[in-house]
Lab assay of single mutants.
Amino acid sequence: DEVRLHVNGHTIEFRGIDEEIFKILEEAAKRGADEEELRRLAEKLLR
């Protein structure tokens, strides 16, 4: 299960996240989070 999030012209792939987590990451990206911040956030949410 892989999703792709487009951030500042880059595509970031995440594996094993559900739609709810994806929406949180998408919102963070809209607020200016970079790839590293998004990955840290995803790790926290998946715990």
Rank of each mutant, 00 (worst) to 15 (best):
I17F: 05
R47T: 15
E19H: 14
E27C: 10
L46T: 08
L25N: 00
R15Y: 15
A33T: 06
F14M: 04
V7S: 03
E13I: 15
R31M: 14
G32Y: 02
E26G: 08
I12H: 02
L38T: 00
T11H: 05
L46W: 04
H10N: 08
R4I: 15
L5G: 01
K30F: 14
T11N: 07
D1A: 08
I21C: 06
R4N: 10
L38Q: 00
D18A: 09
E26D: 05
N8V: 03
K23T: 07
L46C: 09
A33M: 14
E13D: 07
R47H: 15
H6S: 13
L38G: 00
I24M: 09
E26A: 11
A29C: 15
L46K: 13
E36L: 02
D1R: 10
E37F: 14
D1T: 06
A29P: 00
E37C: 02
D18P: 14
L41P: 00
H10A: 07
L45K: 00
K44H: 15
K23Q: 09
T11Q: 05
E19R: 12
I12E: 03
R47G: 15
D18Y: 03
D34I: 06
A28P: 00
I21S: 10
R40D: 14
E2T: 15
L5R: 00
A28N: 06
R39V: 09
R31A: 13
A42R: 01
A29F: 09
K23N: 08
I17D: 03
A28F: 13
L25T: 00
R4Q: 12
G16M: 02
I17P: 02
F22V: 10
F22S: 05
F14N: 01
K30V: 07
D34Q: 07
F14K: 00
E43I: 08
L41G: 00
L25A: 00
L41Y: 06
D34V: 11
K30C: 02
E13G: 09
A28M: 10
F14S: 00
R40M: 13
H10V: 14
R15D: 11
R15S: 12
E35C: 06
E27S: 07
I17K: 02
K44Q: 10
F22H: 05
E20C: 12
L5M: 05
I12V: 08
R47N: 15
N8F: 03
H6T: 14
I21Q: 15
E37D: 10
E43R: 07
R15F: 10
L38R: 00
G32V: 02
R31C: 08
K23L: 10
N8G: 10
A33C: 07
E27F: 12
D34W: 04
I24L: 11
L38P: 00
F22Q: 08
E43Q: 09
R31Q: 14
T11P: 06
N8H: 06
E36F: 08
I21M: 15
L45V: 03
E43S: 07
E27Y: 13
L46A: 07
E2Q: 08
K30I: 11
E13F: 12
E36W: 14
K44D: 12
E36I: 11
E20S: 10
E2G: 11
R31P: 01
E27I: 08
G9I: 05
A29Q: 06
R40L: 13
E20Q: 12
E27T: 12
K30W: 12
R39D: 02
L38A: 00
E37K: 07
K44E: 14
A33Y: 14
D34G: 09
R31I: 08
R31Y: 13
I24N: 03
G9W: 04
E19N: 11
L41C: 07
L25F: 01
F14L: 07
R4M: 08
A28S: 09
F14A: 01
A29R: 03
R47Q: 15
E13C: 06
L41D: 00
K23F: 08
L38N: 00
G32A: 01
E26Y: 11
R31F: 14
F22P: 00
A42H: 10
E43M: 07
L46Y: 03
L46R: 06
A28V: 09
R4Y: 15
K23V: 09
I17A: 03
H10L: 13
F22N: 02
D18K: 07
R15T: 15
H10I: 13
R40S: 14
E37V: 06
L46F: 06
K44F: 11
H10W: 04
R39Q: 06
V3L: 15
R40P: 00
E36T: 11
A42T: 03
E36Q: 13
A29L: 13
I17N: 03
L25W: 01
R15I: 14
L5C: 05
E26T: 07
N8S: 05
I17M: 05
R47A: 15
A29G: 05
I12A: 02
G9D: 05
E13L: 14
A29K: 04
E36P: 13
L5S: 01
A42I: 09
N8A: 07
E13H: 11
E37P: 01
R40E: 14
L5P: 04
K30Q: 11
H10F: 13
A33P: 01
D18V: 04
F22I: 11
K44S: 12
L45T: 01
E43T: 06
E37I: 08
E2Y: 09
F14G: 01
T11A: 07
G16C: 04
K30H: 09
A42L: 13
I12F: 03
T11R: 03
A29D: 00
R39F: 10
G9Q: 02
R39A: 02
D34Y: 03
R31H: 14
K30S: 10
I12Q: 02
E27G: 09
H6C: 09
I21E: 04
E26V: 14
D1F: 15
T11M: 11
N8Q: 06
E35N: 06
E19Q: 09
G9H: 03
V7N: 03
E19G: 12
E43C: 11
A29I: 11
D18E: 06
K23M: 10
L41R: 01
A42K: 03
E26P: 00
K30D: 06
K23C: 04
L46D: 04
V7T: 03
E35M: 08
F22L: 10
R15L: 12
G32L: 01
L5V: 11
I21K: 09
V7K: 01
A33K: 04
E2M: 11
R31S: 13
V3M: 15
V7D: 02
I17Q: 02
G9V: 03
G9C: 02
I12R: 00
I21F: 09
R4G: 06
L46N: 05
A29E: 03
E2F: 14
E37S: 10
H6P: 06
A42Q: 05
E13R: 06
D34C: 02
D34H: 09
G32M: 02
